[in-house]
């Protein structure tokens, strides 16, 4: 994939992307999972994205703070400022290796947690949930992995759908050592 796609209508000019309709963050179902996937992919490809938010999250909205902030957050305009302040490129991302994935998580200020996902069940579910997926289709191994990944705040599970949160880093910033 060379850029974001999925069900989110958008326009792309060079390295700039604009979502043409508000993205539903309510967590009521597939739309929110697709919105997360869209923003996550933009972030991973180093694209600058302009978007507006709709809906009131039924989950902890801080789960999305590693994604680029919207220009509008009608449900909670006060939180928009915090999102803008807290958002840093590369605060949460993953990288692929042979039979493992590493996750770097610097969402808690002053910490840099490095996780290596190499357990087949965990790794398989993490990768599968890069595509928004109904929780109902997961088998018991998938459900157990989902619980662990949700507890680590690496997956958003809401409204019967689940989606992986850390973008895969496709384009390193300059300097690449900054993240």
């Amino acid at each position: 994939m060379s850029g974001p796609d999925g069900g989110v209508p958008h326009r792309r000019t060079g390295r700039r992307v604009e979502a043409t309709a508000p993205l539903d963050l309510s967590g009521a179902g597939r739309a929110t999972a697709e919105a997360v996937r869209f923003l996550r992919e933009c972030q991973g490809h180093g694209l600058s994205v302009r978007w507006r938010a709709a809906g009131t999250p039924s989950y902890d909205p801080a789960l999305l703070r590693h994604l680029p902030p919207p220009v509008e957050l009608p449900a909670d305009p006060g939180a928009l400022e915090a999102w803008r302040t807290e958002h840093t490129h590369g605060v949460l991302y993953h990288r692929r290796g042979p039979d493992f994935v590493t996750v770097l998580d610097r969402r808690r200020r002053g910490t840099a947690v490095r996780l290596t996902l190499d357990h087949p069940g965990l790794l398989g579910t993490f990768l599968r949930l890069l595509e928004p997926t109904p929780v109902a289709v997961l088998d018991p191994v998938g459900r157990e992995a989902l619980a662990l990944l949700t507890a680590e705040r690496l997956v958003l599970a809401c409204g019967g759908w689940a989606v992986t949160l850390p973008p895969r880093i496709r384009r390193w910033p300059v300097p690449c050592t900054a993240i």
């Binding site: 390295r15 180093g46 840093t88 490129h89 590369g90 610097r106 840099a112 384009r171 390193w172 910033p173 300059v174 300097p175 050592t177 900054a178 993240i179």
Partner: peptide, 11 residues
């Protein structure tokens, strides 16, 4: 090209 530019040591 326009890389994502970050301050050195921001990590």
């Amino acid at each position: 090209g326009e890389p994502v530019r970050l301050p050195e040591g921001s990590g």
